[in-house]
Write a protein that binds this DNA or RNA. Structure first.
Lengths: 118, 118
DNA sequence: TTCGCTTATTCGAAAAAATCGAATAAGCGA
DNA sequence: TCGCTTATTCGATTTTTTCGAATAAGCGAA
């Protein structure tokens, strides 16, 4: 398997980060990782085919948004919070804050059926 | 000419805003408008063909990022700062802040030759 | 009104990117 | 080695982006 590419912190581009987060599936992944810390691909909780998920993770990884390392057969993903905060102070937290506030449908995939939100 | 569509403030989606700013040309336009207030298309200072510029402005307008109104033969564009701030408090300013900090090449097109930036 | 000029959108074809099923790779344990 | 699990890569289709050419629309002068 080819080695996965991660940009150096100083090479992370703002437009790449914004582009990576400018998709409902990828924003949901970022939110999930922010909450859970580190997760393998299969536990990201997004309803897309495996090949599409791989593509989304690549976009995020190459944008510098997340780090991925292998553990056995699994690929563990986590947000590069420190690197992002060094390069763009406060940005990621601000985005995750407003994302939490104004959740979009795709981000509520696992809400409890009993909790109505009339 | 068809009427230009602008989403209502409450219909603005975070992913649309991030996607709209996740392109070097569009981020440069947002920065320019943040600095100058309101500008017609021809004074946005981006080096792309007219038809491409029209497309970029449409993406931004339909994302809720900017407002466009006609004045004579010109279309005046301005950021929807109040609407965006109401929907996603602090987000736009945060993005413009870090964009200013870490300017990408396309954003420095008009820097003064005399002003060194060491 | 009609012509010429300016500003900007829309059309249409080509290039680039996203999607997703099928095939492949790679680790683990029996 | 075989079978199972996890995830990437391939390849074809769909969607989006790009940009020259055509169109639209306002303005001022003849």
């Amino acid at each position: 398997m080819r080695r996965l590419h991660h940009p150096n912190p100083e090479d992370i581009l703002l437009t790449d980060v914004l582009y990576a987060l400018g998709d409902p599936v990828r924003l949901a992944i970022a939110q999930r990782l922010a909450q859970k810390g580190a997760l393998p691909c299969c536990e990201l909780g997004v309803a897309v085919p495996k090949s599409t998920l791989s593509h989304h993770l690549r976009i995020m990884r190459e944008a510098g948004l997340l780090h991925c390392h292998k553990e056995g057969t699994q690929h563990i993903n986590s947000l590069r919070r420190a690197d992002l905060n060094a390069r763009f102070p406060g940005l990621l937290d601000q985005i995750l804050d407003v994302a939490m506030m104004a959740s979009q449908p795709v981000e509520r995939v696992e809400s409890q059926p009993g909790e109505a939100e009339h």
